[in-house]
């Protein structure tokens, strides 16, 4: 789908030295991370650790102050969400889903990338049919002509993920996919993520629901105040391990500071 030379041994996306500031706040202090083909990479960390900012940079919604991206080994500039979707095959599923509640499911799925005849006429029937196909592939009962605003949170989440399948995007980014949904629907979403993995897609997801992260992810990157503190393979990992990785460093530093203050003469 793109003309970039592809080195298939390289990670599908690589990030080096990514820095992002918002005014006086530094959200990312130099992120180095590889995203490998067909993995499910989880990103965990405390609030404010920079997880959402990182995804926003990957999708082109914000631009980094410094750092570089590589797509399959080849340096790229990530400029805008629209171009990222088309050129790099990255589909971003936002926490607030970025969909219009007044429009139908199929109108939302094709928004901005409509199937057209003669360049300007919408092929409504074709879009509706294609949307129906993808929804059926995902094993949901959602029909393309339903109004999006009337769907439950979980159903909307599935529709948002469907956009990635619809346009055959290879890299799917998810920001808190199970945060605002019922437990039952969360299972549907997790199963869908598993499906994406089976279809050969690469998935990156942010979640504070550590049990969900452990359920679907193959690797987990731990963000701590704007840096990648650790990257763990999901082998026999427990929630306690993750929590320690997210906060343990800080707790250890605080304890070391406290111990130092207990030494006489160090004030």
């Amino acid at each position: 789908m793109n003309a970039i030379d592809q080195d298939h041994r390289a990670p599908v996306l690589s990030v080096r030295g990514l820095v992002k500031r918002f005014g006086s706040v530094t959200a990312l202090e130099g992120i180095d991370l590889d995203i490998n083909e067909n993995e499910v990479l989880g990103i965990v960390g405390d609030n404010g650790a920079g997880k959402s900012t990182f995804l926003a940079l990957l999708t082109g919604y914000h631009h980094p102050d410094s750092g570089e991206f590589r797509y399959r080994g080849h340096p790229v500039r990530i400029t805008s969400p629209a171009r990222t979707r088309r050129a790099l095959g990255i589909e971003m599923v936002y926490q607030d889903l970025a969909m219009a509640p007044d429009l139908s499911v199929w109108e939302n799925l094709f928004l901005g990338e409509e199937i057209k005849r003669f360049g300007i006429l919408s092929s409504r029937r074709a879009m509706r049919a294609r949307a129906g196909e993808v929804l059926a592939q995902m094993n949901t009962k959602i029909r393309p002509e339903w109004q999006l605003g009337q769907l439950s949170g979980g159903e909307r989440q599935l529709v948002a993920i469907a956009r990635g399948l619809l346009f055959d995007r290879d890299i799917i980014l998810l920001d808190e996919p199970t945060a605002a949904i019922s437990v039952a629907k969360a299972d549907d979403v997790l199963n869908t993520i598993g499906d994406l993995h089976k279809r050969g897609k690469t998935v990156v997801l942010i979640s504070h629901r550590l049990e969900d992260v452990l359920a679907v992810c193959t690797r987990i990157a731990v963000f701590v105040t704007g840096r990648v503190a650790q990257v763990l393979d999901n082998r026999d990992l427990t929630i306690a391990d993750l929590i320690h990785a997210m906060f343990g460093g800080a707790a250890d530093r605080q304890r070391a500071q406290w111990e130092r203050r207990q030494q006489p003469g160090t004030r």
């Binding site: 919604y61 805008s80 969400p81 629209a82 171009r83 979707r85 971003m92 936002y94 607030d96 889903l97 970025a98 969909m99 219009a100 509640p101 007044d102 429009l103 109108e107 939302n108 094709f110 928004l111 901005g112 990338e113 409509e114 057209k116 300007i120 919408s122």
Partner: peptide, 20 residues
């Protein structure tokens, strides 16, 4: 597509911008 574009701005402008 203009119809869907205009409606999407009224419905959720942020979403419309995010899809480009």
């Amino acid at each position: 597509p203009l119809g869907a574009w205009l409606k999407s701005i009224g419905s959720n402008e942020l979403a419309a911008r995010r899809v480009g």
